[in-house]
Each structure stands twice: as C-alpha cells, then as structure tokens.
Computed example of a mutant assay.
Amino acid sequence: MKMAILGAGFIARSMSATINKMDEVTSYAVASRDYKKAEAFAKEFAFEKAYGSYEEMLSDPEVELVYVATPHSHHYEHVKLCLNHGKHVLCEKSFAINAKQTEEMFALALEKKLLLTEAIWTRYMPLRKTLDDIIASGVIGNVSMLTANLGYVINRVPRLLEPSLAGGALLDVGVYPINFALMVFGNDIERITSTAILTDKGVDAQNSITFEYKDGRMAVLNSTMMSQTDRLGIISGNKGFIIAENINNCERIRVYDLDQKEIACYEAPKQISGYEYEVRACIKAIQEGKLECEEMPHAETIRVMQIMDSLRKKWGVIYPGE
C-alpha cells in the first residue's frame, strides 16, 4: 500500500522511519507547505515523491493511505482535505480539538466510504490484549483501583503554550492516561472530578482526573508538561496488582501478589517503534472494506474527546473559535 505523510515535523519523522522498515507499505510521498523541507525529508527517508502543498499530494492518484502528522489544532482541516480527495486516513492523536470536530470528521469519512482512525498507538499494541487476559485470569482478584500518569518537561515547546494551537497537557499527554483507564475499566463512568493548574495563557500545565465507576471502581489519572513522571499504569486488586511500564508504549507488564512479590513478567515483543501496529491495523481494515479499526472504533475516539471537552469546560480552557 502506498502511504503518504501530511506534514514533515517531529512525529512524521518517527512514522517515516517506521514504515521504511515495513514490508506492507511503500514510503510513497510526503508533503509540507515548504517544498524544500519536503524535498529534504523525502531524501532522508527515501520517499518517492515530495510535494510543496498538501492539495498537490492529495491529488496524486497513487496515494492510498495518508498519515496526518500536523498539530492537532489543524487535524479537522487536514483530515477533511484528505477525505475530500478520496484518501483513507490515519490521524495522529489527539484526533481533533473537540468532540464536535471529531463527529463531523467521522461523518464525512462514512459519507465518503473511507477509513478514518485515530493513531493513538496504545490501542493497537500487542500488550493491550495481554493486559486484558491477565486481568480476566483473576490472578490479582477483583480489581477496584487504577492509577496512571504521564508527564514530560515540555513546557517550553511553543505549540503547547498557545491556545490557538490547542495547547496544554491534556490533549498532548493526558489523552494517554484517559485511554489507559478506558481500555482497562471501560466507559461505565458515574462521575468525573478533576483539577488543573493553568498557565498565564490559559492552557493546562498539569492536571489530575478521577473517574468514579458505577460499580465502585476508581481511576486516578495525572498528566503534566512540567515534570518527568514514571509513566506507570498500576491496576490493583484484592489478590495483587499489575504494573504496566510506560503507558504510552508499554514496555513490559509485571504482576505482583499480596506480599509484593513479582509472580509474572510479560515483555513487549520486539518492535520497530510501535507505530507499525496502527499502520497494519489500517491496512487490514482497508483490505476488509471496513471504515474503522476495531482496535480504536469511532465511538471510542468520540468518547475520549467528550471527556476532554467536559474537563476543559470545568477548568475554563477554551480554544479560539470554540
């Protein structure tokens, strides 16, 4: 399958390095608003073609699947552009800036009969199913508590500071703990409480979120762009607990008993970068004529965006145009 990259920034580099090592796809084209940047990028990552405009690349009939790698503040515009040119789309997280945009994007994809899915890589990782299987086995008993965190010292990254670029910790890193909780505990949430520290420009620098589930389970989630965290996801039961190391690209899962003795360890399989799983999921879905990936259905992306909308509303974080 001939794959194209829309945007030639940091995340595009990671994806390009990945697909270069995959047999299932061809590194076909890259587009940037700056042709020289696209040309240099294409040369570095062995793309067949470079384009100085997104529209020009999307008009190329050879392009089959487009990875949208621009900032999430631009996803709504760029994904619609891809769909209106008849291209299947894998869109980087966060999928959009709010649920309204998200629903419109999916509606257009369904109308055009094209695949559109969110590139939230945690949903596609092999260890996700392993985690489900461990919990289902009952080895840690009845599960009642989950904690997850993610944070990096990224508070000097310009796009994260600007409301006009949908900045803040929530959409950039907080989306991972939220997805982790929904993957493990599901959507049957009774109440969400939270608090956030805002920057001078009015985006969240760090936040803490608690999901209270109807059956009494709780998930406590933290994200920050001010500090480096341990990136752990911890799932606790009445017979032991599980530690998922690095929730946004799980490296291993450790299982402990009530005496805090490690009783099992599951290592992630060897991978290129982790991005290959979402690309393979797209290829499989397209070949099967599906319009969404089973690993990250449209409804789940919408649910995450709705949660983040409700959090931002409580904090008073409003992006221009909303």
Rank of each mutant, 00 (worst) to 15 (best):
R159I: 12
G216V: 10
N149W: 02
D204R: 10
L198M: 14
G237A: 11
V63M: 05
I178K: 04
V153Q: 15
S73G: 13
L127F: 06
V79K: 13
K261R: 15
A107S: 09
V68S: 09
T117R: 12
A109T: 08
T70H: 04
L221Y: 05
L160W: 08
V153W: 04
F95K: 05
H72V: 09
P126D: 08
E92A: 09
E276M: 04
E295H: 14
M296L: 15
A219I: 06
R280V: 03
A119E: 10
M57I: 10
A4C: 08
R33Q: 08
R159N: 02
A8I: 04
I11E: 03
T26D: 00
H74S: 14
I283P: 13
L291F: 07
H75M: 07
S236W: 02
S59P: 01
M57K: 02
V220W: 01
Q306S: 08
Q101Y: 00
L83A: 03
N238V: 04
V173C: 00
T102V: 13
Q306K: 15
H298N: 14
G289D: 13
G186H: 00
T147Y: 07
Y213W: 08
Y275M: 05
F211M: 03
G289C: 12
S16K: 02
N142M: 03
T147M: 10
T229Q: 11
V79C: 14
L291S: 02
L146H: 06
G202E: 15
S227E: 07
P320E: 01
G321K: 09
P71S: 03
S208W: 11
A196K: 12
E267G: 02
Y266T: 05
L161K: 15
S73V: 09
K201Y: 15
H88M: 04
N246M: 07
D23I: 02
V255Q: 09
K37D: 00
A219C: 06
D60N: 09
A8Y: 03
P158N: 04
G52A: 02
V139W: 03
I253W: 14
K214M: 05
N142A: 10
T70V: 08
K37Q: 05
G7N: 00
V173Q: 03
A40F: 11
Q228F: 01
A96M: 10
A40H: 10
H78Q: 07
E162L: 09
L6P: 01
K37E: 00
M22D: 10
S14I: 12
D23C: 03
L6K: 07
G138L: 12
I5C: 02
M57G: 05
M105R: 12
E162N: 14
A205N: 10
A285Q: 13
V220T: 08
Q101C: 02
V139N: 06
F95L: 12
A244L: 12
L161P: 03
A181V: 14
V203G: 02
Y124H: 11
P163H: 06
I318L: 03
Y35H: 13
A136K: 12
K112Q: 06
H72E: 05
A219D: 01
Y319M: 06
L161H: 11
P297I: 08
V143Q: 09
F180A: 12
A50W: 04
I286A: 15
V66F: 03
G202Q: 14
N20R: 09
G167R: 09
P71D: 01
